[in-house]
Design a protein around this nucleic acid. Structure first.
Lengths: 197, 197
DNA sequence: GTCTATACCCGGATAGAC
DNA sequence: GTCTATCCGGGTATAGAC
């Protein structure tokens, strides 16, 4: 019985270490020697597992986005009402930051730079897809009467997108606030505002 | 009559070009040859004006932060009421993105990495100062009754900080929405929420 | 203030032994 | 799966002429 390719192999271990370093120092600032050192091997040995540093980050991003967008699709296809779908999408983001912090950080910090290479063209596609999802959710929110009609939903989309994902810069799993706490506080601010009704 | 050191000298021109490149591609991804090319000179000639690539970004960041924090201090010292001070601080951020986009982008994208060098230790100090300013503004907002008392103002601070500055990623001066428009929409969401009162 | 020429180092990657 | 050894390119920076 053959192992699943993503089991706890050495290769996966190394990839996990690389993810942490990329997230911490940035893709360009992380050398293959950094990765090898952290994995306790020599830099040349990395090339037994991967054919380049780029292909490491590529694999991390593709996997991550596939999973994430599958979950967005589930929310879109669910029978939740429009407001609940928006809440679910926000909660999903904070949960993802909690569970896939390195990948989120890499995406936030390095996607713009990586997008300039052909190989990473799919990052742009995913951005468009994300915008599409959120604009759908927000339009349905307005149409259903759940959201105010006087807002520029394009701007609302940008604010939500930016605010939920940049939290990866300060959120720490196991810290004082759980991802549920953070999501609740954020939704509270977003939906009700910080002043008295 | 001696010229002001920051007048339209060649040195200033070069620094301006460097700022744009750092903002666009990141500090590490910008080579001194890129800067020299864009300035129409050879890389060696840059060292007539600056003693290293690091000192270029250093000069940009120090100047920028000095100006910015002077303006925050003016707001703090003003006789505006607490809510108006918060609004003024938010408006200042969007105005700064409009007028000093490259510096804001460099700070957003590269400060974390640069902070790890002794030379850039002041970046951490400025972060602490910024937190102090915002926590003061928000506390006064709560105490005066302008803001809801049930919020975690530490989280509110982080959300405001992240959302206003991250807008540098998509805001374009001269575009469809002016920085005034963006500030108004943002304050509207922040203060009132996106649902019906 | 800019050029020519070049030193020097570091990063990514390869070949082949073990 | 890892090591030894090494190549090559590109990046920062310097020295001195013009």
């Amino acid at each position: 019985m053959p192992e699943a390719p993503t089991a706890g192999t050495r290769r996966e271990e190394v990839l996990h270490i690389a993810a942490q370093l990329f997230a911490e120092k940035g893709f360009k600032n992380t050398t293959v020697r950094d990765i090898a050192d952290a994995a306790g091997i020599l830099s040349g040995s990395l090339y037994h597992h991967f054919d380049s540093k780029e292909s490491m980050v590529d694999e991390l991003l593709v996997r991550f986005q596939t999973e994430l967008f599958d979950r967005y699709d589930e929310i879109l296809a669910s029978d939740l009402d429009p407001r609940a779908k928006i809440e679910a999408a926000v909660r999903l983001s904070f949960e993802t930051i909690d569970q896939r912090g390195p990948e989120v950080a890499i995406f936030q910090n390095d996607a713009a730079y990586l997008s300039s290479f052909d190989r990473f063209g799919y990052l742009e596609d995913r951005n468009r897809q994300s915008r599409q999802i959120w604009m759908t959710l927000l339009s349905q929110g307005v149409d259903s009467g759940a959201l105010r009609k006087d807002l520029d939903i394009e701007l609302v989309y940008r604010f939500i997108r930016d605010t939920v994902w940049v939290a990866v810069r300060w959120y720490r799993p196991g810290g004082k606030s759980s991802h549920h706490d953070v999501a609740n506080q954020y939704l509270n601010i977003l939906l009700e505002g910080i002043t008295h009704g």
